[in-house]
């Protein structure tokens, strides 16, 4: 420590003062109190995903270096806020306390309902905060809370917490409500991720890391997907879930009696009917993939102008 004050190294070399490089640099470095270890700034920061993070597809970086959000990200944030409110409301409706994991644990409908409301509230709050701060950790917590809220550990048809419109008497509308709920859930997850993705892209654009050619077309495609995909999904999901209606209708062409028996079949109107419809649809889809239809379709689209 003594040499730091005076710069005299005489005590080290039998009273011989050693002169070396320019004093300013030496003084600066000498006063820094450095050791022989590798300086911290020489080691790059590496984000290694934990086991849980690797399941989610990558590391959750706690502090993204996001610049202030651009207009598109702000619009996406507003969309998330809107969807979040709707989702919270729908979750509250379609997930009554009975049948939840809290009910299984406590056995009390009152406690279960309270916990359920708290979980939905937490999901909403963390979702708002995560979206506002553009922090993937809070969005992930929000997603997990929403999934916990919807998980039901009871054999049941669709049940509602409260039913101001009398949907319980109209099965089609009831299942449509669940479909709409599911679409909202997925769109919430998707647009929440979109906020992060487009924030990163916007940061990269502004730091000149990436150049976007004709951004209008690229963003336009995403906007179209945000509108079209939910609509198409609702229609397709409704078709898949209407197997118990469609199958009897198809069979009815051949035999009206069999069709009537099918309509009255308990199995077909229960969850197994939904499973049967799903199985049927996905067997068809799987067959399309097995026949390499996407590639043939792609080839047709790629070469049709030649």
């Amino acid at each position: 420590m003594a040499e730091k004050k005076s710069g005299d190294t005489a005590h080290l070399y039998d009273s011989k003062t050693v002169r070396s490089s320019a004093p300013s640099r030496k003084k600066l470095a000498g006063n820094a109190g450095i050791g022989t270890e590798i300086p911290k700034d020489a080691v790059p920061e590496i984000q290694i995903p934990s086991f849980v993070e690797s399941l989610l597809g990558g590391p959750l970086v706690p502090k993204m270096k996001f610049l202030p959000p651009d207009k598109m990200v702000q619009n996406l944030q507003l969309a998330v806020y809107g969807i979040l409110i709707a989702l919270a409301f729908l979750t509250l409706i379609v997930s009554p306390g009975a049948g939840t994991v809290w009910y299984m644990l406590t056995g009390s409908i009152g406690v279960a309902t309270t916990v359920q409301v708290v979980v939905i509230a937490l999901a909403t709050i963390t979702g708002f905060y995560g979206t506002f701060r553009r922090d993937g950790r809070y969005l992930l917590i929000s997603n997990v809370f929403f999934i916990l809220a919807i998980l039901r550990f009871a054999s049941s048809k669709v049940a509602l917490s409260f039913d101001p419109f009398g949907l319980a008497d109209r099965p089609f509308l009831l299942s449509s409500l669940v479909v709409v709920y599911a679409v909202f859930l997925i769109m919430y997850i998707e647009i929440g991720n979109g906020v992060l993705r487009y924030s990163m892209l916007d940061t990269s654009i502004r730091t000149n890391e990436v150049y976007v050619m004709n951004p209008g077309k690229i963003v336009g495609k995403y906007h179209r997907a945000l509108v079209l995909n939910p609509i198409i999904s609702v229609v397709l999901a409704t078709l898949v879930l209407s197997a118990n209606t469609i199958l009897p209708a198809l069979v009815g062409v051949l035999s009206s009696n069999t069709a009537q028996r099918l309509e009255e079949s308990v199995e077909l109107t229960s969850v197994y009917g939904v499973a049967l419809g799903t199985l049927f649809v996905f067997i068809v889809t799987g067959a399309l993939f097995a026949l390499n239809l996407p590639t043939h379709l792609q080839r047709y689209r790629e070469t049709r102008d030649e």
Binding site: V94, G99, I150, L151, R152, F153, A154, S155, S156, K157, V158, A159, S175, V178, V179, Y181, A182, V183, L185, I186, N229, S233, L236, A237, V240, L241, S270, V271, Y272, V274, A275, T278, F282
Partner: peptide
């Protein structure tokens, strides 16, 4: 669990 609500949500995710 023969819970049609969960199946419905799963089907929607599959469809998307």
């Amino acid at each position: 669990l023969r819970n049609s609500q969960l199946v419905t949500i799963a089907v929607v995710i599959f469809v998307i």
